[in-house]
Amino acid sequence: MQAQTLDDYLKANHKRRAGPVAMIFVEDDVEVVTTLRHHLRIGFKTVLAFMPDQIALPEDLEHTVQRIRFDTAYDTVPSAVNAIATAMPGTWLYYCYNAEYLFFPFCETRTVGDLLAFHAEERRDAMLTYVIDLYADDLQAHPSAVSLDQAHLDRSGYYALARKRADTNWQPKERQLDFYGGLRWRFEDHVPAARRKIDRIALFRGKPGLVLRDDDTFSDPEYNTYACPWHNNLTAAVCSFRAAKALRRNPGSRQDIQTFKWTNSTPFEWHSQQLLDLGLMEPGQWF
């Protein structure tokens, strides 16, 4: 399929809103195909691949994903997300990057459509996801820190802090927290403070005027909450090699870090039950 610009896609598809829609932003050529296939497999009806022209896809993916010409070196992800959100009001949307994989409770037997249908019944228009860092166990064998077969994650070291409001003497925001952990926490000296959080509102409903900000929060405060006022809601996890890739790509951190493994590393089992057992996502009232 020939790549098109975002403007061309929006003009040609302004009446076609088959959701849920996944927006995959491709930053490099690492695990692009597995990322796209994973999100097709878990039930996204439309997958938009925002990627440079020079990255090739297998023929079957060229016919199953919508390829949009995009370069994260020059184009901004929030502007693209905001354009889609405005053009597709009421449609469930999701965004992530290559080498990131969405997991949610019971995703082995239920689709993302099932997940969002239940979430909507609870009068929720957005879902909190935790970005869980993945990394290869052996950086000599896997210099980029990416290995699906040897992927590890931290089984502990996650915590939350109250999110404060500057306009009310720094009082906590209602049902909003900043979450930390993983590689960004353990190697915080190499990570800018603004990039250390692991919370992302990756699943949300589009609506006109909705703005995704640079810190992965939205202009609508209710979108940024982890639960409704009445009870706990579903959460999901975006299992991601992105931080590990960045720490290995940066010359300073690459020299300082010989391994990402520590006493609380554990092999990633690529199964939602492991994430549930570790408390890295919640089923809420969904059983």
Results as ranks from 00 to 15, higher is better:
Asn224Met: 03
Leu212Tyr: 12
Ser219Phe: 09
Lys164Thr: 12
Glu174Gly: 00
Trp185Leu: 08
Gln171Met: 10
Ala193Lys: 03
Ala194Cys: 09
Pro229Ala: 03
Ala202Ile: 02
Pro192Asn: 04
Val191Ala: 00
Ala151Val: 09
Lys164Ala: 13
Asp214Ile: 14
Pro192Ile: 06
Leu210Trp: 12
Leu183Val: 00
Thr217Asp: 14
Ala162Gly: 05
Gly182Trp: 03
Arg175Ala: 03
Trp230Leu: 08
Thr217Ala: 09
Lys173Arg: 13
Glu174His: 07
Phe218Leu: 08
Gly157Tyr: 00
Asp189Ser: 08
Asp199Cys: 10
Ser147Cys: 02
Lys197Cys: 07
Arg163Ile: 03
Asn224Glu: 01
Arg200Tyr: 13
Glu174Phe: 11
Asp220Pro: 11
Asn169His: 14
Leu203Ile: 07
Tyr180His: 01
Phe179Thr: 04
Lys173Trp: 06
Ser147Asn: 01
Leu161Glu: 09
Tyr223Gly: 08
Tyr159Arg: 06
Cys228Phe: 05
Tyr180Trp: 02
Lys197Thr: 12
Lys173Asn: 06
Ile198Thr: 09
Asn232Pro: 02
Asp215Thr: 11
Asp199Trp: 04
Gln150Lys: 13
Val211Tyr: 13
Thr225Gln: 11
Gly209Trp: 15
Gln176His: 00
Gln176Ile: 06
Asp199Arg: 11
Glu222Asn: 12
Leu139Phe: 05
Lys207Arg: 15
His152Glu: 07
His152Ala: 08
Leu153Ala: 02
Trp170Arg: 01
Tyr159Thr: 04
Lys197Tyr: 05
Ala194Arg: 14
Pro143Tyr: 03
Pro143Ser: 01
Leu203Trp: 01
Ala162Lys: 08
